[in-house]
Write a protein that binds this DNA or RNA. Structure first.
Length: 287
DNA sequence: ATAAAGTCCTGATAGC
DNA sequence: TGCTATCAGGACTTTA
């Protein structure tokens, strides 16, 4: 899940807890993440201080004096904070609960503020890459990304220019990180529902009105989710962090065969496969 | 057993 | 035919 809203919340949490902290040790239990972590990783990070933490798309960017640590959480990556005095664990986002299996804790960053930053990832699709530069335009993963959804440049003109020669369906277009970066399979479904557009529609076949609606829905859905994540941070200290809390906000994702969330709509939510990913839409109000 | 939130790579296809 | 852009599908991995 970690799509843009989840990663944004991780970033905000980490900023509060570890910004300006210094790494005093790194322990790696499994180097085999998406990209193998090199043997030099530990030594290159010891004594480095977190100077800034930012997010681009679904990537976290940790800035050090002359280095950047780029982190992607893949599908199941989680960053946790552990307090050394009592080993108490703190979540950094709302998309997971604390019933984590210890053997999937792959990396520990021991900090000088009595906290340990822990990376847990069941599927190991996430990655950590360290760069000897502080310039993000040197990093290939970031260079190829399209606009941030909240950018003012994400407008009708941009949409039309990008889709002029393309005919892929609108769902896959929104999933394409070189078009708009940050949406994943869950939020794409939610956005299309809000915009009342069927996921299989061709992207160069939308009306001006539909394009406008799609753009505003994208921004709204993401903002709403960030705000929900923000408020769920209140029970940050609740070690029983309940799973599924965020899911109650989904309009269509995972709701196949259920009634449409629009009170006035009598439609049913359908589930189909598009590019091998589950796609959900209302058969009545999305056309 | 089938499916899962993400991205990269490859091979196929379309169009010039 | 050849080049390029685009696109779909598979691969990666572990768990429930």
């Amino acid at each position: 899940m970690p799509e843009l809203p989840e990663v944004e919340i991780v970033k905000r949490s980490l900023f509060k807890m570890i910004n300006k902290a210094k790494i005093i040790d790194v322990k790696i239990y499994n180097r085999n993440l998406r990209y193998k972590i090199p043997l030099t990783f530990r030594q290159s990070l010891i004594d480095e201080k977190f100077l800034k933490i930012s997010r681009r798309s679904k990537y976290l960017i940790f800035y050090f004096r002359k280095k950047i640590l780029l982190v992607h959480l893949g599908m199941s990556g989680k960053l946790l904070i552990m307090r050394e005095s009592d080993n108490k664990i703190f979540k950094t986002s709302f998309y997971y609960d604390l019933n984590l299996i210890h053997k999937h804790n792959h990396i520990y960053f021991k900090l000088n503020n009595n906290l340990v930053l822990v990376y847990n990832d069941v599927r190991r699709f996430g990655f950590f890459k360290l760069y000897n530069t502080t310039k993000t335009d040197k990093i290939k993963f970031l260079k190829k990304l399209g606009l941030e959804p909240f950018s003012k440049k994400f407008n009708v003109k941009y949409f039309k220019e990008f889709t002029q020669k393309r005919k892929k369906n609108i769902k896959n277009l929104l999933m394409d990180q070189s078009f708009i970066s940050g949406l994943g399979n869950i939020y794409v479904n939610e956005v299309l529902f809000m915009a009342r557009i069927r996921p299989i529609r061709s992207c160069n076949d939308l009306s001006q009105h539909e394009i406008k609606k799609l753009i505003s829905s994208t921004k709204k859905i993401l903002k709403f989710s960030i705000s929900k994540g923000g408020s769920s941070l209140k029970d940050f200290k609740n070690a029983l962090g309940k799973s599924g809390v965020f899911q109650q906000f989904f309009y269509v994702y995972g709701r196949q065969n259920k009634n449409c969330s629009r009170i006035s709509c009598k439609g049913k939510i359908k589930k189909i496969l598009i590019a091998n990913r589950s796609s959900f839409y209302c058969n009545k109000c999305q056309s």
